[in-house]
Amino acid sequence: MTDQQAEARSYLSEEMIAEFKAAFDMFDADGGGDISVKELGTVMRMLGQTPTKEELDAIIEEVDEDGSGTIDFEEFLVMMVRQ
């Protein structure tokens, strides 16, 4: 866990972390443990947004600390705390 990830967790109660985990699992449609650009786009479109591929890439790049091209749960928490 990076310093950013530990800091993000410090702002959240266990209840909030559990709620974010449920949301993360909804995004992680294939159950792979991370959110891909495609999965992020699908959920955002379900919520009425129309992000471009470039916008989706930028969202993932902003929090993808390990350079995997996807968002894992710890990175997702950082993203949610920043919102």
Rank of each mutant, 00 (worst) to 15 (best):
Q83P: 15
I60Y: 12
I35E: 00
D64H: 12
G69A: 06
A18R: 10
L56D: 02
K21C: 01
T42Y: 07
E61T: 11
K21Y: 02
E62P: 06
S10Y: 15
I35K: 00
V78N: 13
F27W: 11
A8Q: 06
E15D: 06
S10D: 14
M46E: 12
R82V: 04
F24L: 00
I35V: 10
M1R: 10
Q83L: 07
S10M: 06
V37Y: 15
E55P: 01
S36Y: 15
K21T: 02
M26L: 11
K21S: 02
G33H: 01
F20W: 08
E75V: 05
Q49M: 10
Q5E: 09
G69F: 02
M44T: 01
M26F: 14
G67L: 11
F76W: 01
T52K: 08
G48H: 14
A29I: 06
Q49S: 14
E14K: 05
G41I: 11
D25S: 07
G41W: 07
E61W: 06
M46A: 09
G31L: 04
T52A: 07
F76H: 00
G33R: 02
P51S: 05
F76A: 02
S68G: 15
E15R: 09
M79H: 09
R45E: 10
L77W: 02
E54G: 02
E74V: 02
V78E: 12
E39P: 00
F27M: 07
M79G: 09
D64R: 13
I35Q: 00
Y11M: 09
I35A: 01
L40S: 01
A58E: 09
F73I: 01
D66H: 14
S36R: 07
D34C: 13
M44W: 01
M1A: 10
D57P: 04
E54K: 05
L12V: 06
E62C: 10
D28P: 07
M44V: 04
G69L: 07
R82Q: 08
I17K: 10
A23M: 06
K38G: 12
K21Q: 04
R9C: 05
R9Y: 05
Q5Y: 07
K53T: 11
Q5C: 11
F24K: 01
R82S: 08
T42S: 10
T2I: 01
E19K: 15
M16P: 00
L12Y: 07
D66Y: 07
I17V: 08
T52Y: 03
Q4R: 13
G33V: 01
A29T: 12
G69V: 02
E19D: 13
M79A: 14
K53G: 06
G32Q: 09
F73E: 01
E75T: 13
